[in-house]
């Protein structure tokens, strides 16, 4: 992965401006490069705010629902390593209960199970 892109993602991850989440979603999670998608997803998880976690949990083809197992597993690992898991559990519960896509629901259920075991 390009070093400059990695630094931009880090800068956006640490950014206080909420618009940074939109940039990460737009350019990072939609990237054709698996490494960029993986790095962006982890950055969004590290932000640990409602909007950023929502991107990697409820969207089909992004974060835990990524078609690349490496990206999905890496995102799940990052979620499991969070110190404060309250926000992520809340979003997972909402996804399991309210989401229309069954595969997204299934993934959210699996991650919640892993969180319960960890």
């Amino acid at each position: 992965m390009n070093k400059n892109i990695a630094e931009i993602i880090d800068a956006l991850a640490a950014h206080q401006d909420t618009s940074s989440i939109g940039v990460l979603e737009e350019l990072g999670t939609n990237s054709s490069d698996n490494d960029v998608r993986e790095y962006t997803s982890r950055a969004l998880v590290r932000k640990n705010v409602h909007d950023s976690l929502k991107v990697v949990i409820i969207n089909q083809g992004k974060g835990i629902n990524d078609l690349s197992p490496a990206v999905a597993m890496s995102t799940i690992n990052e979620i499991l390593s969070l110190k404060d898991k309250t926000e992520v559990i809340k979003i997972l519960d909402d996804t399991i209960n309210l989401h229309s896509d069954e595969s997204v629901k299934e993934n959210a259920r699996s991650v919640k199970s892993l969180l319960a075991l960890s």
Partner: peptide, 8 residues
């Protein structure tokens, strides 16, 4: 953020 986006 806008500048970071442009750079990206």
């Amino acid at each position: 953020v806008a500048e970071l986006r442009t750079m990206w």
